[in-house]
Design a binder for these strands. Structure first.
Lengths: 239, 239
DNA sequence: CGGTAACCGGACCAATGATCCGGTGCTCGA
DNA sequence: TCGAGCACCGGATCATTGGTCCGGTTACCG
């Protein structure tokens, strides 16, 4: 998708269409979920014929790619000099996560290469911030990937579980676990389904473990940043 | 899927079918990818009519659920007394990741609740091991989720990127980044596409950050386990 | 030996992604 | 002013897919 040249436009300003399609696609996805998005339904919502969409967009996958990238525009990129790299990264990752949870359908689409401008801009910020913080190469990629993987996995997991109607599937699953509690004693007793809520707290905890690890690899930032950057935003998670 | 009772069988041993379907589905998925799996093609490979499949399986989603769970049987559950909890967790997560990479199509299916016996058994081991290590509740869920999220995200990311034909998409993406290198300087210079390979090393690094964080929260294990459990398997990642 | 229940599959249906090809209206140059 | 060209639209249509109907066929049990 992002690798093809944009559909050749006329001579002047585009007559406002691709944007509307994507916008409406996101609305439809938000309202009814991923499997209810069909080109016909989308066209109907736009008050047009389904075939017309194919003039602005090559395939349905394009729509999905565009929609997926579009929602990441909601993630605010922290201004550079906020309160240190750790605060910046925390804010970015937090916003990323919020978007994933606000648009649960996105979880199912994460399995495609994300090369849209919004995603790239946020990745760029992540890399740049880490670089500026003094994270160097063996650890730089690990840090950037670790953080991305962590949010993505987290969003996927959380969007998956309450998904599919929320309480009914969740309840059935809980019941299923309870029924087999001899086979899965630890899960049944402490599993994610019994320990309700606090996904956010758990997420923050794990995020700080990662950040601690990243920070520990930066020699000069290890000592002072621990108080300057970290503590202010919920730094190292020593209990 | 996992919540419904198993399709009522005859009086004695099942005439060997559901297993074969799942087995063949995995083979087909491995060979041709997720989008090439249709009920007709699967039936053809099994030398039967497509309709027959629906006697053994309720919907195609069932096949996917079953296939997804089936591959996790390949993840060996470490024997309890290996070399401490950290080694056990590392081994489990490593195996988990290996499976995700060995069956790249699984990445796209992770967005569905995984309640199959194989997945549950491995989750059970994870919880049990952490419990036994002394991780307690605020941190227990965070640890289990953090680790799971991390592997899943990692598998998703890595399976996504080389996916779709491997080098061609990858090359085009690299080209695309290079073309816009003014907009994404850090990405273009240090991004994942230029810093080739070493996904494994990066993964291990991040995993150890998480493990360090988990370990730091366990008071008694913090001092001695650092040498006993951690060092042996590549413990804390202070550079 | 007859019937009952497990199992199979051809014909069929509705929905979907995508294309063909004939329109329509706006703009720009002469 | 006008007509030609091009961006844009959409009805009809195709192939494919997931899934069902319903009539067969086998094999085991009484």
């Amino acid at each position: 998708m992002w690798l093809r040249p944009p559909a050749r436009r006329g001579r002047d300003a585009p007559p406002l269409s691709r944007e509307r399609i994507v916008e409406e696609a996101v609305a439809l996805l938000d309202a009814e979920g991923a499997d209810r998005l069909t080109m016909r339904r989308l066209a109907e919502r736009l008050g047009t014929g389904s075939t017309t969409l194919y003039w602005h967009v090559k395939t349905k996958d394009d729509v999905l790619d565009l929609a997926l990238d579009a929602i990441f525009a909601e993630v605010e990129i922290p201004s550079g000099d906020d309160r240190g790299w750790r605060a910046g990264v925390t804010a970015l990752i937090g916003g990323w996560r919020a978007v994933l949870l606000r648009h649960p359908w996105s979880a199912a689409l994460l399995g495609r290469p994300m090369l849209g401008p919004n995603v790239l801009a946020r990745s760029e910020f992540l890399y740049a911030t880490l670089l500026e913080a003094g994270v160097v190469e063996p650890r730089l990629t690990a840090a950037a990937y670790g953080l991305s993987n962590y949010v993505i996995g987290s969003g996927l997991m959380q969007a998956t579980w309450p998904a599919g109607g929320g309480e009914d599937v969740r309840g059935a699953a809980r019941e299923h676990l309870r029924a087999n509690r001899e086979r899965y004693p630890a899960l049944a007793a402490h599993g994610p389904l019994v320990a309700e809520g606090d996904w956010d707290a758990g997420f923050t905890l794990g995020l700080n473990w990662l950040l601690d690890g990243i920070q520990a690899g930066v020699p000069d930032a290890g000592a002072d940043a621990d108080g300057a950057d970290g503590a202010g935003t919920g730094g190292p998670a020593r209990a």
